[in-house]
Design a binder for these strands. Structure first.
Lengths: 187, 187
DNA sequence: ACAAAATTAGGTCAATTGACCTAATTTTTC
DNA sequence: GAAAAATTAGGTCAATTGACCTAATTTTGT
């Protein structure tokens, strides 16, 4: 990894850190530089304006998420002794993020908030979700003849769960019990 | 309705209008006053700071939504001649909002963005969703013995659909075809 | 050692914003 | 018609922010 790449990565991590701890409204170039013990000038040497910084940070974040899902998928797949049902339950447990992934989901919310009035970010997010769905379809196609249905069910559901999950009349475990047979029937 | 109430209502409508057209970041006391052809001083005569204004606006918005929901409730009640399947399909068609309800959904997103770093608004939203789920459970309990499951399925799904609905591998009609039998099986 | 890359220091500038304030005037209410 | 409520006018003040700039210095790669 080139020095420049190392640096831009650390910058972007600082952006995400500020975003997670203080939110969109308080995210400024100065604050990011401060967190890195870096000069504002130097930060601007790498990202000449805030927009470029945000776009880069969002791209980085999406890449991280995709890698996470990919890793869990292969881990579950390597578990040859898992039944299909156990596999589905494992995926659901991953997707219906509990309090452990709170920060990540908080970041999702902040980024959504940023993208709301930023066309470039909006496009980037749409692209991310499209790619994510495509990829997810190919994964499920190993188990089902209608992977599109599974994806079209799971992706919006997990998004929505992150928003209203704590106000539902069922607990997370019950949701997994509810969803698992539905997925299994989409063979 | 008292004069004061009329005025505060018009103020709050202006807040929502600015929120819908320009978004959270560009919402300022001055802009709201400007939209009302009102002095900043006068606006501050009614709401002494921005927080009070936001809290009032969000409460108003939720009340509107609740009223909508209530109206749909009575409309559904009057339609006694619908088959269960038609009923479910109709409900799904309503919930999977198309471009027609864009503005309302945009407002939802903006308010979510506001609430992200405002505990009072956060509590208000949670309360709104909880009430909404309760109401929805009572509605479905007329058709199913597990209305909680239906609600726990539909509410997050429709939330998520509003976010990622346009990037899914299935069209809206196909989604309704997919979801209807799932709901019908939860009897 | 030399050139390029990275970094610091230190600034300017215009714009926005929330929070305050007072005095005068108009409108409403009773 | 008098008191209360609503409204205007006009301001101040401190803080933040993004964007921009230049000159000097240090670090790194080769």
């Amino acid at each position: 990894m080139s020095k420049r790449l190392e640096k831009t990565n650390s910058i972007i991590q600082a952006v995400l850190s500020v975003l997670a701890t203080e939110g969109t409204q308080k995210l400024s170039m100065r604050k990011v530089a401060e967190q890195l013990n870096m000069t504002l000038s130097n930060l601007q040497y790498y990202y000449k304006d805030k927009d470029q910084l945000l776009v880069a940070a969002v791209a980085y974040f999406f890449k991280l998420c995709q890698e996470d899902v990919e890793q869990t998928w292969t881990e579950l797949k390597d578990h040859k002794d898992l039944s299909l049902e156990e596999f589905v339950r494992g995926m659901l447990a991953l997707l219906l993020v509990g309090p452990e992934s709170q920060e990540r989901f908080l970041l999702f919310k902040e980024i959504r908030s940023l993208a709301l009035r930023n066309e470039e970010l909006q496009r980037a997010m749409d692209q991310y979700y499209t790619d994510y769905c495509d990829w997810f379809v190919t994964l499920w196609s190993a188990f089902s003849s209608q992977p599109e249905s599974i994806v079209a069910l799971l992706v919006p559901y997990t998004e929505g769960y992150g928003i209203v999950g704590n106000t539902l009349p069922l607990e997370r475990e019950q949701l997994i019990d509810l969803l698992t047979p539905i997925i299994l029937k989409l063979k």
